[in-house]
């Protein structure tokens, strides 16, 4: 194993390990076909990172690896201080509690109100009711949905639904927020609103990783951009999409 892992594992107090660390990570779904190939990557606490790349370049694969939904074929991954290869089946849930996640398709429960959708994230972690009553309205006000507590997902616009999903991802105070194409189903105005929210969440201290195809937003926001192509990182720099491209 590499020096870096040994270093961070030593838990020396001066060196805070990155919240996300990948070392020579490869993933083959089918033997010999790399969805990711020798990816090494460090994301530090409080960063805001875009991950871009054409369809099939391995962006979602990367997200799944971070959630330990799949395991790498090769290499090592550390997330929120946990070395994923050492995580037993039963501890995966603990890893996920430190990660908030939103998807393109919102994943809301249609038979529940906005309040209950957000509260669900706390109920499944057995958070006591008095905390749920305190936290849910607070986080809904951050995403600007205080007025819609009692609405059902079908009564909301796409942007509003994504904001509910965002509130659900945030309500348990995750260290990291992962977003896999959060604006993929939204019009430009709603896309911008979600992005500003993500920026705001990042300002409050959460590390934010956003997978997106939205070139305009990436260019405008001037954040760190990691570009994947056919499973390989071909660019990692601050700035816009177009810079990364060449």
């Amino acid at each position: 194993m590499s020096d870096k892992f040994d270093l961070y594992r030593a838990e020396s107090e001066e060196i805070e390990p990155p919240v996300i660390l990948l070392e020579e990570v490869s993933k083959d779904y089918v033997e010999g076909q790399h969805a990711l190939k020798n990816v090494s990557l460090e994301i530090r606490k409080g960063e805001f990172v875009f991950i871009v790349g054409s369809s099939g370049s391995g962006k979602s694969t990367l997200i799944k690896l971070l959630l330990k939904e799949i395991s790498p074929t090769k290499g090592h991954i550390m997330v929120a201080g946990k070395e994923l290869s050492r995580l037993r089946e039963n501890s995966i849930c603990k890893l996920r509690r430190s990660i908030g996640i939103v998807f393109q398709d919102f994943r809301l429960l249609k038979d529940r109100t906005v309040f209950d959708n957000v509260a669900f994230a706390q109920r499944v972690l057995e958070v006591p009711n008095y905390k749920i009553r305190r936290d849910v309205p607070r986080v809904l006000s951050i995403v600007g949905l205080s007025e819609k507590l009692r609405s059902y997902p079908d009564e909301l616009s796409g942007g509003e639904q994504q904001r509910v999903a965002l509130a659900r991802a945030l309500v348990n105070n995750p260290v990291i927020l992962l977003a896999d194409e959060p604006t993929g189903n939204l019009d430009p105005r709603n896309s911008w609103e979600i992005m500003h929210l993500l920026e705001e969440i990042n300002r409050r201290g959460t590390t934010v990783v956003v997978v997106t195809h939205n070139r305009e937003i990436v260019d405008a926001m001037q954040k760190r951009v990691i570009t994947l192509n056919k499973g390989v990182i071909i660019g990692d720099q601050k700035g816009g999409y177009s810079h990364a491209k060449n």
Binding site: C93, K94, R96, R97, L109, A121, V124, L125, E126
Partner: peptide
């Protein structure tokens, strides 16, 4: 299915 998938995502324990 949907609910369970979200539960897994949020980090609900297997027991739960």
């Amino acid at each position: 299915r949907e609910e369970i998938s979200i539960m897994k995502l949020i980090g609900a324990s297997n027991f739960f």
